[in-house]
Design a protein around this nucleic acid. Structure first.
Lengths: 197, 197
DNA sequence: GTCTATATATCGATAGAC
DNA sequence: GTCTATCGATATATAGAC
């Protein structure tokens, strides 16, 4: 059995990425200084450049991790249940819950993409397209199976994805609804939007 | 009859506000330089400070105008029709259409508020609360009148307002849907969400 | 009220010791 | 791999001529 990697808490790359995620979410990419990121990670200003070539590369690392996590959430929710209604419910519930619980990551992932270099941005857009295709595919399958009555599957997919993403904008930890409650509200809303039940 | 004000096109304050709105929407408040704003308005870097005390004051002027416009859109839509369903339809349709057609202003209004100084921010939040109260009030009135079947008026209001706001994030002029089509899609969605028809 | 020129501060990124 | 020190570029905002 091989040795484990160093503890996550002491992994400098992980510490820098986590620190940058918080900073970017609070103040935005352009308003965040590399000094601030390094300081939050308990390092000197120069330490960031040992692990990343630029501030933009830190954002790229965050965007990749965030989109891969989100994609996994949706893909996992799509498996394991039988009806299209239950699958769509689970997808929207978990995607909305993720944007609430991980709103710090979500805010960076959804609102700082324009700060990525074109090549990095294009890579991230591919992951976004996969998530959108997952949701649209489930709606269209439900319509084909007679579970949903909507005549505008694309419109319904647009509405539901937009709703989930916007949770990252307005969610506050001290608000009225918990992430799980938001997930339930949005799953119910999804059923109404596609015309189910 | 008194003289008219100077032509809008030559009003330097208006030119600076319009230039700043475009710049903030494209690159964000912090990434926009005062040189860029002045240059877009056809002025020297120093000219901005003749009309505004700081870059933040330009954002404040934009945020006030944007929120007042949006509030007016919703208030106007709430008048002139008879049923609560028609009123809510009109409110959501026009609010969504505004965020599409005025997506440049909408993006600044919805995503750059954190850059405002606390006092200015508080003022703008008051206007936002009025819009939210308008929508929630209409839903609750519709429920009381037996037009809507939802048992969660606050949840429905949250969902509908979030949907409309997020249009400013994803809308592109070269996209599949026109502002009017988005308005119709969202008005239909509103009826499904509150349980009407 | 607009300009040119610049004061002052701070940024991203690098150099070199350890 | 982390640090201190700093370079070069660029930012907001101001001074003073016209």
């Amino acid at each position: 059995m091989t040795r484990e990697a160093p503890l996550l808490r002491t992994d400098p790359v992980r510490r820098l990425v986590d620190a940058a995620t918080e900073a970017f979410a609070e103040r935005g990419f352009h308003a965040t200084t590399t000094r601030d990121i390094a300081s939050r990670a308990g390092m000197s200003p120069a330490a960031l450049y040992v692990h990343f070539r630029s501030k933009e590369e830190v954002l790229y690392a965050i965007a990749l991790r965030g989109h891969r996590d989100a994609r996994q959430i949706v893909a996992d929710a799509a498996g394991g249940t039988s009806t299209h209604a239950e699958r769509l419910r689970a997808m929207i519930r978990d995607f909305a819950t993720w944007h609430a619980g991980e709103h710090t990551m979500g805010r960076v992932v959804q609102y700082e993409l324009d700060a990525l270099e074109p090549g990095h941005r294009a890579e991230v857009v591919l992951l976004r397209n996969e998530i959108e295709a997952d949701v649209l595919g489930e709606i269209e399958a439900g319509v084909a199976a007679g579970e949903f009555t909507t005549t505008d599957a694309k419109g319904a997919a647009l509405v539901l994805l937009s709703l989930c993403v916007d949770v990252a904008r307005w969610y506050r930890a001290d608000g009225r609804l918990s992430p799980a409650q938001i997930g339930d509200l949005y799953a119910d809303t999804a059923m109404r939007v596609v015309g189910c039940g």
